[in-house]
Amino acid sequence: MDDLFMWLIALWTFIMLGLMVIGGYFMFRKFLKRMPKGDGYSELDWQAFYIDKALPLWHDEAKSMLNELVTPVPELFRDVAKERIAGRISKIALDEGAKKITLDHIMKGYIIATPKRDHKFMKKKLNELDIDYTPYEALFEYADDEKQKFSIFEQTEKVSSRSS
């Protein structure tokens, strides 16, 4: 009986260590995003800046479309995904001098902000909403890739120069 108890304690220790490592990994990633870049601002600072600057461009229809597009994301991560996508959309719309956020801006921002591993779910959601994404097929190469980290600005600059 004592052996069983010791094994359970050892198992519990490994489970707790594993959970702490997983949590630490995600906290470290958030810490890295908060680290200032060469210009003194972090990725999250710029994301918040563009969202705030473009807030008047967002109308109810665009907000509801964004909310609908992030429904496949688990609820725990949905707010983070929404902010990330909204930051990309806002940057693109501001770069183009738009008067309001359109479906075109939403599609561009949504595609480049969605990690490549999630494209299958993204395309499924777009098909459910009867949104034709074939005109944006070339933008899938600019999507977030875990192996090649791009800044929000590098991606949106490429998209803006491509559409000009």
Rank of each mutant, 00 (worst) to 15 (best):
M1D: 07
M6F: 15
W7V: 10
L8P: 13
I9Q: 14
A10N: 02
W12P: 01
F14H: 10
I15W: 07
L17N: 09
L17W: 09
G18L: 03
V21I: 15
G23P: 02
F26W: 08
M27F: 11
F28A: 03
K30T: 01
K30P: 00
F31Q: 00
F31K: 00
K33D: 13
M35P: 01
P36C: 03
K37G: 10
K37C: 10
G38E: 09
Y41C: 13
S42L: 09
L44C: 06
L44H: 02
D45S: 05
W46R: 11
Q47I: 11
A48W: 06
Y50R: 10
D52W: 07
K53R: 15
A54G: 12
P56L: 05
L57V: 13
W58G: 03
W58I: 03
W58D: 01
W58K: 02
H59Y: 13
H59I: 15
H59Q: 15
A62M: 09
A62H: 09
M65N: 13
L66K: 03
L66D: 02
N67T: 14
N67F: 04
E68N: 14
L69A: 13
L69G: 07
V70C: 06
V70P: 05
V70A: 09
V73W: 01
V73M: 01
E75Q: 04
E75S: 12
L76P: 00
F77E: 05
F77P: 00
F77D: 08
R78E: 09
D79R: 14
D79K: 08
D79E: 14
D79T: 12
V80Y: 07
K82L: 10
I85S: 02
I85H: 01
I85Q: 02
I85P: 00
A86M: 05
G87I: 02
R88H: 12
K91I: 00
K91M: 10
K91N: 12
I92D: 10
I92S: 08
I92T: 14
I92M: 11
A93T: 02
A93V: 03
A93P: 04
A93S: 12
L94I: 06
L94Q: 04
D95H: 12
D95L: 14
D95E: 15
E96S: 11
E96G: 01
G97F: 03
G97L: 01
A98K: 05
K99M: 05
K99R: 12
I101A: 09
T102Y: 08
T102E: 13
T102N: 13
D104C: 07
H105W: 04
I111W: 00
I112M: 00
T114E: 04
P115K: 14
P115E: 03
P115T: 04
R117T: 11
R117D: 05
D118H: 09
H119F: 15
F121I: 14
F121W: 14
K123D: 03
K124N: 07
K125G: 06
L126G: 06
L129H: 12
I131Q: 03
I131S: 02
D132I: 05
D132P: 06
T134G: 15
P135W: 07
Y136P: 03
E137N: 06
A138C: 08
A138K: 15
A143N: 01
D144W: 04
D144F: 05
D145Y: 11
D145K: 00
D145L: 01
E146W: 14
K149T: 10
K149Y: 11
F153A: 06
F153R: 01
E154W: 05
T156S: 14
E157R: 13
K158F: 07
V159L: 11
V159T: 14
S160V: 09
S164M: 05
S164L: 02
